[in-house]
Protein backbone atom coordinates (compact mmCIF):
# COMPACT_ATOMS: atom_id res chain seq x y z
CA UNK A 1 0.00 0.00 0.00
CA UNK A 2 1.38 3.35 -1.00
CA UNK A 3 1.83 5.59 1.98
CA UNK A 4 -0.24 8.72 2.31
CA UNK A 5 0.76 12.09 3.67
CA UNK A 6 -1.02 12.81 6.95
CA UNK A 7 -0.91 16.19 8.64
CA UNK A 8 -2.11 16.58 12.20
CA UNK A 9 -3.06 20.21 12.78
CA UNK A 10 -2.88 21.22 16.46
CA UNK A 11 -4.37 24.57 17.45
CA UNK A 12 -5.34 24.16 21.11
CA UNK A 13 -3.37 24.80 24.30
CA UNK A 14 -2.40 21.62 26.15
CA UNK A 15 -4.11 21.31 29.54
CA UNK A 16 -7.38 23.25 29.30
CA UNK A 17 -9.08 20.79 26.99
CA UNK A 18 -8.53 17.22 25.88
CA UNK A 19 -7.64 18.03 22.25
CA UNK A 20 -3.85 18.00 22.65
CA UNK A 21 -3.70 14.68 24.49
CA UNK A 22 -6.20 13.10 22.08
CA UNK A 23 -4.17 14.28 19.12
CA UNK A 24 -0.97 12.84 20.55
CA UNK A 25 -2.64 9.50 21.19
CA UNK A 26 -4.02 9.34 17.66
CA UNK A 27 -0.58 10.20 16.31
CA UNK A 28 1.04 7.40 18.32
CA UNK A 29 -1.61 4.86 17.36
CA UNK A 30 -1.53 5.99 13.74
CA UNK A 31 2.25 5.60 13.66
CA UNK A 32 1.73 1.83 13.54
CA UNK A 33 0.43 2.25 9.98
CA UNK A 34 3.76 3.66 8.84
CA UNK A 35 2.40 6.55 6.81
CA UNK A 36 4.15 9.81 6.01
CA UNK A 37 3.21 11.83 9.08
CA UNK A 38 3.71 15.53 9.82
CA UNK A 39 2.55 17.56 12.80
CA UNK A 40 1.72 21.26 12.68
CA UNK A 41 1.41 23.54 15.69
CA UNK A 42 -0.52 26.75 15.09
CA UNK A 43 -2.14 29.39 17.34
CA UNK A 44 -2.38 28.18 20.97
CA UNK A 45 -1.20 24.77 19.77
CA UNK A 46 2.38 26.06 20.05
CA UNK A 47 1.92 26.05 23.84
CA UNK A 48 1.90 22.23 23.68
CA UNK A 49 5.62 22.27 22.96
CA UNK A 50 6.72 24.61 25.76
CA UNK A 51 9.51 23.51 28.07
CA UNK A 52 8.99 22.89 31.79
CA UNK A 53 5.33 21.86 31.83
CA UNK A 54 4.47 20.29 35.19
CA UNK A 55 0.92 19.12 35.85
CA UNK A 56 1.67 17.49 39.21
CA UNK A 57 -0.44 19.98 41.14
CA UNK A 58 -3.35 19.55 38.71
CA UNK A 59 -3.41 15.82 39.29
CA UNK A 60 -3.66 15.23 35.54
CA UNK A 61 -1.27 13.34 33.32
CA UNK A 62 1.69 15.33 32.07
CA UNK A 63 1.92 14.17 28.48
CA UNK A 64 4.44 16.78 27.38
CA UNK A 65 7.46 14.41 27.78
CA UNK A 66 5.72 12.10 25.32
CA UNK A 67 6.46 14.52 22.48
CA UNK A 68 10.11 13.56 22.95
CA UNK A 69 9.24 9.96 22.03
CA UNK A 70 7.91 10.97 18.59
CA UNK A 71 11.35 10.51 17.06
CA UNK A 72 11.25 6.85 18.12
CA UNK A 73 8.00 6.58 16.20
CA UNK A 74 9.73 7.89 13.07
CA UNK A 75 7.96 11.21 13.24
CA UNK A 76 10.49 13.80 12.25
CA UNK A 77 8.47 16.58 10.66
CA UNK A 78 7.12 18.90 13.31
CA UNK A 79 6.16 22.28 11.91
CA UNK A 80 5.62 25.28 14.16
CA UNK A 81 4.16 28.42 12.65
CA UNK A 82 6.51 31.36 13.24
CA UNK A 83 3.66 33.90 13.34
CA UNK A 84 1.91 31.97 16.15
CA UNK A 85 5.12 31.85 18.19
CA UNK A 86 5.77 35.53 17.69
CA UNK A 87 2.22 36.53 18.61
CA UNK A 88 2.77 34.78 21.95
CA UNK A 89 6.21 36.27 22.59
CA UNK A 90 7.89 32.89 22.15
CA UNK A 91 10.98 31.72 20.32
CA UNK A 92 12.46 28.33 19.46
CA UNK A 93 14.37 28.41 22.76
CA UNK A 94 11.08 28.24 24.66
CA UNK A 95 10.20 24.93 23.00
CA UNK A 96 11.28 21.43 23.97
CA UNK A 97 14.10 20.26 21.76
CA UNK A 98 12.65 17.38 19.73
CA UNK A 99 14.94 15.17 17.69
CA UNK A 100 14.97 12.03 15.59
CA UNK A 101 17.77 9.70 14.51
CA UNK A 102 18.40 9.37 10.81
CA UNK A 103 18.96 5.70 10.03
CA UNK A 104 20.33 6.59 6.58
CA UNK A 105 22.91 8.94 8.04
CA UNK A 106 24.58 6.70 10.66
CA UNK A 107 21.83 7.48 13.21
CA UNK A 108 22.77 11.14 13.32
CA UNK A 109 20.53 13.08 15.68
CA UNK A 110 18.55 15.73 13.85
CA UNK A 111 16.06 18.41 14.82
CA UNK A 112 12.42 17.50 14.29
CA UNK A 113 11.11 21.00 14.90
CA UNK A 114 10.92 23.25 11.87
CA UNK A 115 9.80 26.80 12.40
CA UNK A 116 7.98 27.87 9.25
CA UNK A 117 6.17 30.97 8.02
CA UNK A 118 2.42 30.97 7.40
CA UNK A 119 3.18 30.95 3.71
CA UNK A 120 5.40 27.87 3.94
CA UNK A 121 2.88 26.10 6.14
CA UNK A 122 0.08 26.88 3.68
CA UNK A 123 2.14 25.11 1.03
CA UNK A 124 2.72 22.12 3.34
CA UNK A 125 -1.04 21.86 3.98
CA UNK A 126 -1.63 21.89 0.24
CA UNK A 127 0.74 18.93 -0.25
CA UNK A 128 -1.06 16.55 2.13
CA UNK A 129 -3.44 13.73 1.37
CA UNK A 130 -5.21 13.72 4.73
CA UNK A 131 -5.72 16.60 7.17
CA UNK A 132 -6.63 15.83 10.78
CA UNK A 133 -7.61 18.65 13.09
CA UNK A 134 -7.32 18.94 16.86
Amino acid sequence: MASKRFLYMNRKAPHGSVYALESLEVVLIGAAFEQDVSLAFVDDGVYQLLLNQDTAALGSKNFSPTFKALGDYDISKIYVEAESLEARGLTRDDLMPLTWEDEDDDWAEKDSIHIVSSEALAEIIEQQDVLLNF
Partner: peptide, 15 residues
Protein backbone atom coordinates in the same frame (compact mmCIF):
# COMPACT_ATOMS: atom_id res chain seq x y z
CA UNK B 1 9.65 7.39 33.40
CA UNK B 2 11.21 9.45 30.63
CA UNK B 3 8.35 9.64 28.10
CA UNK B 4 5.19 8.83 30.06
CA UNK B 5 4.15 6.13 27.61
CA UNK B 6 4.72 2.45 27.10
CA UNK B 7 6.28 2.13 23.64
CA UNK B 8 4.66 0.26 20.74
CA UNK B 9 6.28 -3.10 19.92
CA UNK B 10 8.07 -1.73 16.89
CA UNK B 11 9.54 1.08 18.95
CA UNK B 12 10.40 -1.25 21.82
CA UNK B 13 12.22 -3.64 19.52
CA UNK B 14 14.31 -0.90 17.98
CA UNK B 15 15.11 0.72 21.30
Amino acid sequence: EEYQIAPAVRVLTKA
